[in-house]
Design a protein around this nucleic acid. Structure first.
Lengths: 156, 156
DNA sequence: TTGCGAATGACACTCATTCCCAAATATGTT
DNA sequence: AACATATTTGGGAATGAGTGTCATTCGCAA
């Protein structure tokens, strides 16, 4: 990998690098980075939006539903994947922030689709500070925040 | 009601006033403000945090589960109640923002409890503007946003 | 008070997700 | 290379939150 190449999702080097990171992380927790798990990661890395289980299985029909659910759970607990509850019938999954960077979501109330959005760092900083202040007042220990914009997407 | 009295949740005048508003709103949609619906509203108004269906039925055992779910749904569709997907086993419900004011949520990852939090209006304004800008770039029509702070509550 | 559409509640049902377990596969050891 | 051991797999059964059904009851308007 060239020293200065930007890691672009979908790029082969990026995927290879990511697989290494994830494999190492799983190994640390006595989990194996099996082909099924690798396939899950690739599907999520290639789509660049959160996916439901039906989405995932449709994208790679080799994946068995029960194994996919089980592995998604393993990967979530290992901090590799993030689980989103957007309110539709199905839970959405996406790569975790260490892999994808901090971002938020734009959710279409009508069709349920979710898009990633990025706030300016000034806004992000202010929000973070503000939340920390509020949390400390009630003895709450903040871990992360999520900001969802609900509305209608261009297609709906 | 005294002209300058602050509407405090739990206050009797506040409840009476709220019931009037809600009754009117339901009537406009050809729905009746029955005692079951009124009981739901009172339970939610008295607790000052979002509740799950088991919470609600525990707080008022006269409520039948199927009717409670059905009425919660009617009230959500009438804009009186808001449905929250926090990720636990059960959906949470709370009075809608026109009644409760704009606010956000502090969610304990361990016990699943949810508390309301309020951001400063400066932060709120900046976030709102920022989200509008982002939405317009993709032809998205924003309706509302929600900001969740995830972490561990003081008890956990 | 009567008539009629809306609401009720007990229970059946759906379906997303989890559980189960025998077979398959990976890893470490002689 | 074959073995021992632990993890993973996948098909189908089980779970359970939430929704649908329907005969009965209620609320409202004339």
């Amino acid at each position: 990998m060239t020293a200065e190449s930007l890691p672009v999702p979908g790029d082969e080097d990026y995927l290879a690098e990511m697989h290494l990171q994830i494999g190492a992380r799983l190994a640390r927790q006595e989990h194996r980075y099996t082909s099924g798990r690798r396939q899950l990661i690739e599907v999520l890395a290639l789509a660049n939006q959160p996916m439901t289980l039906p989405d995932i299985v449709a994208a790679d029909p080799d994946l068995a539903q029960s194994s996919a659910y089980r592995n998604l759970d393993v990967l979530v607990r290992s901090g590799v994947i993030r689980r989103l509850s957007a309110g539709g019938d199905h839970t959405h999954f996406e790569l975790a922030e260490p892999l994808l960077g901090h971002h938020h979501h734009q959710i279409c109330i009508r069709c349920g689709s979710i898009e990633d959005i990025h706030l300016g760092s000034d806004v992000e900083l202010l929000v973070d500070q503000s939340l920390s202040d509020i949390a400390s007042q009630s003895g709450f220990t903040p871990i992360h925040h999520s900001l969802d914009l609900h509305g209608h997407c261009a297609d709906c």
